[in-house]
């Protein structure tokens, strides 16, 4: 083992250990001057009236986002896989929402969903639907942030599923055509089963990313009105940075709950990937 090896192998490792310590220092930092609080912060979080709604919103937000992103992404991937004139260019354009800074997407959606002057309500008005208070009413705020998040997530699903489609041998489809299979049968009998490994990974990565989503919700609704779109990520931020008197301890406790959730799915992801490589 040369010195060089040590320097360039050990340094990133050291860096990562340091990082993992950093996430931990939140608690040690806060409690450095304060008496040891044990699990008090966690107790406080669990008995907080925000806990139930935040958990529910995190689950609904993640589940609904994933379902729509994946379904739409899959449909688009199959569509673009047919190779027609311009398909490559159009597919590239679909990447745009994913590449834009989240604050750009979030503020654009905020204005589009504005109650009085938003283009969405104007369009709904044309077909005779009453204006909806997308961002300012408790029953719609969560729906609004889900819509924006689905829009941002479609490109990722499209690109990954599309590259998975390219791995399916064309001969399978030719054989199916000879046997007289319809397009619908080809999708359910060939495409869907063959894509199962890629789909699993897409969904898991999507899950891990969606649990982390903070920017969009915070910028569009700040988790409101009255917590109606608060998830663990925005709750944690609000506890830590949103008030004049920061509650780092509880904020970090919420964050650590979030990291446990992400890690569970992260480990499942790594397991699946290992099994596929074996």
């Amino acid at each position: 083992m040369t010195l060089y090896l040590l320097a360039f192998y050990a340094y990133p490792l050291y860096r990562n250990i340091e990082l993992s310590l950093r996430t931990y220092t939140v608690r040690s930092f806060v409690q450095g001057g304060a008496p040891f609080a044990g699990l008090d912060n966690y107790g406080k979080i669990l008995s907080d009236p925000t806990f139930g709604p935040a958990l529910l919103h995190t689950v609904v937000f993640t589940g609904a986002s994933l379902a729509f992103q994946f379904t739409i992404g899959m449909a688009l991937a199959v569509f673009f896989h047919q190779h027609f004139p311009l398909s490559g260019t159009l597919r590239a354009l679909f990447l745009v929402p994913w590449l834009l800074p989240l604050i750009v997407s979030a503020s654009t959606w905020s204005w589009m969903l504005n109650s009085e002057a938003g283009v969405v309500n104007a369009a709904l008005g044309v077909v005779g639907v009453e204006p909806v208070n997308w961002l300012t009413s408790p029953q719609w705020s969560l729906v609004s942030v889900i819509i924006a998040n689905v829009w941002i997530g479609i490109p990722f699903n499209l690109v990954v599923l599309y590259s998975g489609l390219q791995g399916i041998p064309g001969t399978l489809y030719e054989a199916a055509s000879l046997d007289g299979a319809t397009g619908w049968q080809r999708f359910w009998r060939i495409t869907f089963p063959m894509l199962r490994p890629v789909s699993a990974i897409t969904l898991l990565l999507g899950l891990i990313y969606t649990l982390k989503v903070f920017d969009i919700i915070w910028i569009m609704t700040r988790g409101g009105p009255t917590d109606s779109s608060t998830t663990f990520a925005t709750w944690s931020y609000r506890l830590g940075f949103g008030n004049l008197l920061p509650a780092f301890g509880p904020g970090a406790a919420v964050g650590n709950l979030l990291i446990v959730m992400a890690l569970i799915f992260g480990l499942i992801y790594i397991r699946i990937q290992r099994r596929q490589q074996a």
Partner: peptide
């Protein structure tokens, strides 16, 4: 490390 939510890193960095 890629799966750690940004908000947690942000709090850690803030403290440091």
């Amino acid at each position: 490390a890629q799966m750690i939510p940004g908000i947690i890193m942000a709090m850690g960095f803030y403290a440091i």
